[in-house]
Write a protein that binds this DNA or RNA. Sequence first.
RNA 1: GGCAACGUGACCGAGUGGCUAGGUAGAGGUCUGCAAAACCUCCUACAGCGGUUCGAAUCCGCUCGUUGCCUCCA
Length: 496
Amino acid sequence: MPLSLYNTLSRRKEEFQPVHPPQVGVYLCGPTVYSEAHLGNARGPVVFDVLTRYLRHLGHQVRYVRNITDVGHLESDADAGEDKMEKAARAARIEPMQVAQHYTNRYRQHMLALGCLPPDIEPQASGHIIEQIQVIEEIIANGLAYEVNGSVYFDVPRYNEHERYGKLSNRSIEDQLAGTRANLEGQSEKRSPLDFALWKKAAPEHIMRWPSPWGEGFPGWHLECSAMSRKYLGKLSDIHGGGLDLMFPHHECEIAQSQGSHAHTDEARFWVHNNMITVNGTKMSKSLGNFVLLGDMFQGPTGPLAFGYSPMVVRFFLLQAHYRSPVDVSDDALQAARKGYRKLMNGLRLLDKLAAIEATGEVLETAAQQLLALAAKPAEFLNDDLNTPRALAALFDLLKRFNTLASTPAALAEVGAEALAQAAGTYRTFVQDVLGLRDEPRANAEQLLDLTLGFYSEAKADKAYDKVDQIRAALKGQGIVIKDTKAGVEWAYSEE
RNA sequence: GGCAACGUGACCGAGUGGCUAGGUAGAGGUCUGCAAAACCUCCUACAGCGGUUCGAAUCCGCUCGUUGCCUCCA
């Protein structure tokens, strides 16, 4: 069964075929870097990390783009253009770019800790003003945007005459107009309340500004993704994703911009949306204030959580739910995830042990086939719209089999070395390379060292010099030398 | 108001017409110097009410409840 993904555009699962094989272009809407990332911000990157890892595992040549939005994103229409970046910068009395850089650095740290491989390209909106202006010019040339007082707006009703504005989020402009009639205030520049800004004129106090054919200003909220996706992935990329809350208006506008520019495409063939993370059933969001910051939750108790959780536990927790389902965060759920994660990691160590067991006897073909059938499951489930919870369930089934084999030499012999090696390889590959779950050592090296030095001292007191020499040699192999001083036993890094 | 979801056992969370999800917790057992791990067995649920069907957690309708988007949000 080939890989299929749920495409928001068609509202059904579709078989995945690259637009230009063997290349696959994947774009994930990245963070706006004006504040710390919270747990909700981690879901998309983790899901897309698994997706890109799996696409590579399947042999595709993936170009994964995850942008950094460091300009734009107005606080609201009402305050007539104060930028989130600027607001944060003004509050901290520093350069807006300093704010962006700070949170960009933090974001990268957290994503790396969560096991997300760095994207192949991580473009910044501020570095692509020229490209964005070009897209605007194309849209104007196509008669789908208009300039008013140094700002440029996308003409939604006009666009809707030939294309359907709302095709992604399944809404009609009539419905939308009915819903917005109440708050027409402050939108006087727009011909229609549905129109959205492609370029905004900068007020005198606005710090982040760039020259353009329409005067000094800054790009609109949705433009950077269209411009950068096109620049790095072509007019039609394979997969474009983000959180469900970006579906409208962000992604809807992206499609309109792309169709309205000279690209004339939906920007991506597959539109993939991950669901939200909730706290007590309600969405985690900045505006609601019920968020759990990643940095905080890795360290210790924070907000609704009475304990801290390591990045890998968080990753496992996220992968235990399907990406299109909402997932509720709680101590109970995370603690269950932690145990499951550790069980899976203990499995990695078991594999080495299994390979070392000498099992002689007749290989039974059916036993070998059974094991290989189990090992085939994880891929089968990932192929079905990236069903990570089922893939994990399959890995646990496989692990249970490994555990049985480890204590039953006769059964191990029946399976045979070949099938065992293959199944073990699958387990390792899916856990580590595809799902990206790596072992997080919990043992404290210095404490273990102290323990060893304790045994060393005891051996020395017993004049068990064989043991003493053994310990010395073993530690030396780790680059550590033991020093017997008058004050007691100490250790130091070997200087050899 | 418009659009879109969801309601699964003690908890988390898969599953979409008949066949075991899985993890965690709990009970009993095997193993064990103690313990842990592991393995075996058990606890076997699908909001409610109707309908379709030989058969429904799964399809349809209604009721109740929860949520998301429509404004920045992953």
